[in-house]
Design a protein around this nucleic acid. Sequence first.
DNA 1: ATCACCTGTGGGAGCGCTCCCACGGTACCT
DNA 2: AGGTACCGTGGGAGCGCTCCCACAGGTGAT
Lengths: 351, 351
Amino acid sequence: MVVHGARGRSGRRPTLEEVAARAGVGRGTVSRVINGSPRVSDATRAAVEAAVAELGYVPNTAARALAANRTDAIALVVPEPETRFFAEPYFSDMLRGVGAALSDTEMQLLLIFAGSDRERRRLAQYLAAHRVDGVLLVSVHADDPLPDLLSQLEIPAVISGRRSADETLPSVDSDNYGGGRAAVEHLLDRGCRTIAHIAGRLDVFGAQRRVDGYRDALRDAGREVDEELILTGDFTEAGGRRAMTELLARRPALDAVFAGSDVMAAGARQVLREAGRRTPDDVALVGYDDSAIARHMDPPLTSVRQPIEDMGRAMLDLLLDEIADRRPAVSRGLDKRQLVLPATLVERDSS
Amino acid sequence: MVVHGARGRSGRRPTLEEVAARAGVGRGTVSRVINGSPRVSDATRAAVEAAVAELGYVPNTAARALAANRTDAIALVVPEPETRFFAEPYFSDMLRGVGAALSDTEMQLLLIFAGSDRERRRLAQYLAAHRVDGVLLVSVHADDPLPDLLSQLEIPAVISGRRSADETLPSVDSDNYGGGRAAVEHLLDRGCRTIAHIAGRLDVFGAQRRVDGYRDALRDAGREVDEELILTGDFTEAGGRRAMTELLARRPALDAVFAGSDVMAAGARQVLREAGRRTPDDVALVGYDDSAIARHMDPPLTSVRQPIEDMGRAMLDLLLDEIADRRPAVSRGLDKRQLVLPATLVERDSS
DNA sequence: ATCACCTGTGGGAGCGCTCCCACGGTACCT
DNA sequence: AGGTACCGTGGGAGCGCTCCCACAGGTGAT
C-alpha cells in the first residue's frame, strides 16, 4: 500500500529511458530486466532494479500495448442480464475461480455483461478494438453469434459448457452425463421404482446429456425407460412446478424425481408438498448444481455438484495457452482443448 | 453484432493513415472526425465517415491512450472480499446505477476487489500504472489508506458515503440523519413509547448519523433519550441477535426497535420470536437499507431506503466532472462536490 | 593465429494515435 | 488596395514502449 520511490508531487512518471540513464545502461537492457529476460548479467540486473526502485518506475501499459500489440487483459463475458449474474451462484463461483487463478498472473480481468442488444453492440465494438487478448465465455446458448464473432476477429476464446458434442471452440465442461447417471443410480440404490426426470431446456447441450445419463442409468439397471416420465422445465422454479404438476397427473405413483437444476427441484418440492407428498418418504428428490438453494431447502436437497470454481481455473489455463500459442502462429491439434471435469453427487436428506 | 467493412480474414486492422488515404484527406482530419471535432466541413466529414465504414476502422485504444495520456476507463473499487460483494445487494445496486449511467459514455468500467492484502497490493500497482482515469470507491472505512494513495497519485476519485463530517474527497452520501429520524418518527406516530436502537459500527460515519437522527427525533418529540436503549451491533446478524438479547434484559418493556441495518433487524427478529414477542403487536421493528431481506422477512420489514442506484449515477457524474476538470488543471471550489441524497421510509407490516 | 560462435549490451525503427503549428483560402474590415 | 481574422486542413513531432539488428568481447575449436 506504499508508493515506492521519491517521486511524490513531481507529477510526471519516470520512463524506461530515465531508468536506463540512472542505472547507466541502455534502454533495451532495462526492458529486458523488466520483462524478466534471462539474457542479463546479475550485476546489471541488480543495478537496474535499484534504479527502478529509486525512481518508483512503473511501466506504461499503453506504450507497451502499442509496441507489443497485446493488452495483458482478458474478459469474462456474461451473455446475460446483470440480475441473473447476481442471482445465480454459478457466475460468482466461476468468477472466484478465474480470479484466483489470475492472481498468479500479470493479466487483468474484465467483467462484461452482454444481456441487452445495446450491451452486445458495445461488446462487439470492444472486441473489434481488440481491447482484450482473450475471452472467457460463460453460459453460451446454442445459437449465440458471439463465438463466431470471436473467431472472425481471431480472438482466443474459451467457453464454459459445450454447444454440442462436436464443439469447435476450446471448452471446459462438467460431466453432465455422469452427473445424471449418478443421480439416478443413487435413487435406484435407495430402492426407488418410478423415477421421473424434469429436464432443463434441451437447447442446452448439458441438459441433454443429463437426460442421456438418466436414460442409460435406468437401462443399465434393467429398467425400461418410460418416456412419459420425462418432462422439460426451462430451468425456472415455475417450470419445475408445471412439470411436477403434470408428472403427478400422469404417474401418481411415482416415488422419485431427478430435476435438472436445484431451482426446478425447488418448484417441484412445492407442488409435492401441496399434494401432501412427503420428501423423501413418499417421493425422493434430487437436484443439480448444489447451489445455496439446495442447502437451504427443507429438507436439504441431494444435488449433483459441478466443480465450478475448478472449471473457472481450467478455463483460464486453457485461454492463456491459446493466447501464448497464437503468438508464433502455431496451430496445435485439438488435444486437450476440450476439458470435462467430473460431477459428484452430494447426498442430503431429500433422498 | 455485425463486423463492418470488408476486412474479413486480412488480419491487420486499418489505421488512421489508411483511412485518411482512402478518404483523400490528411491524418489530422480523420482524427478530428473520429473525435467529433466541429472544425470539419460537412463534405469532408461525410467522406471520412464513408472511408471508416468501408474499411471497418476501429481506433487503436493503446495508441490513443499513449498519445493522449488517458485510458477512457474508470474503476469501481470494492475494498471488500468478493463474497460480501455478492452477498450484499448494496453493491449490485450500485454497480447497476454506475453501469446504466456509463452506457451513455465511451468510458469502460472495471470492477476491482481489494479485500485481501494481496489484492490491495495489486490495486496499488494498478493505480500507480495509471491504468484508469478515475476511481469510484465504495464502502470506505474511516482509516482506509486508499483515498490518500489516490490523491498522492493525483487520480480523480469519488467515494460513496463520507468518512467524516468534513470529508475532503468528492462524495455521494445518503441522508443517514434524516433516515434515522424518519424511522423513529414513524415509530412515535405508531404510538410506540420505548424505542431502542441497534446501531451499526460507529467508525462508519453513516451509522453515527443514524444514531444522531434517532436521538434528535426523540428529543424533538419531547422524549428523554435513554442511553441504555442504544447498543451497537456490527452490521451482522449475530450482532443483531446479541444486541437484542441484551436489550430485552435491560428494558423488558420496550415496544419498538430501530435497527441500523436489515441484517441486524433480522437477527433481532429471531431473538424476539424466541422470546415470544410478536411483531409488530408486542415490538415494532424498523430496519435500514430496504434490501431483499426486508421484503422476505415474516412479517415484511419496514425499512429505510437509500437510493443506491441513483447514488451510483451521481458518483459517476461527479467523477466524470473531476476527470474533465483536471485536464486543464482547473481547481474549482468545493461547490456541490459533496452530494447527499434523501433516504425514505418504506412502510411494511413489521411496524 | 584464425575462425566460428556464443553472451550481454546499446540503440534505431516503428507501433498508431493526438497535439499543435503552419498554411492557403475566403470574408470582412479599413 | 492592403490588412486582419478566422476556418478548414495537412503533416511533423512525439507519447513510452518492444523488437531486433549490430557489435564488442570472450571462449573454444581448428
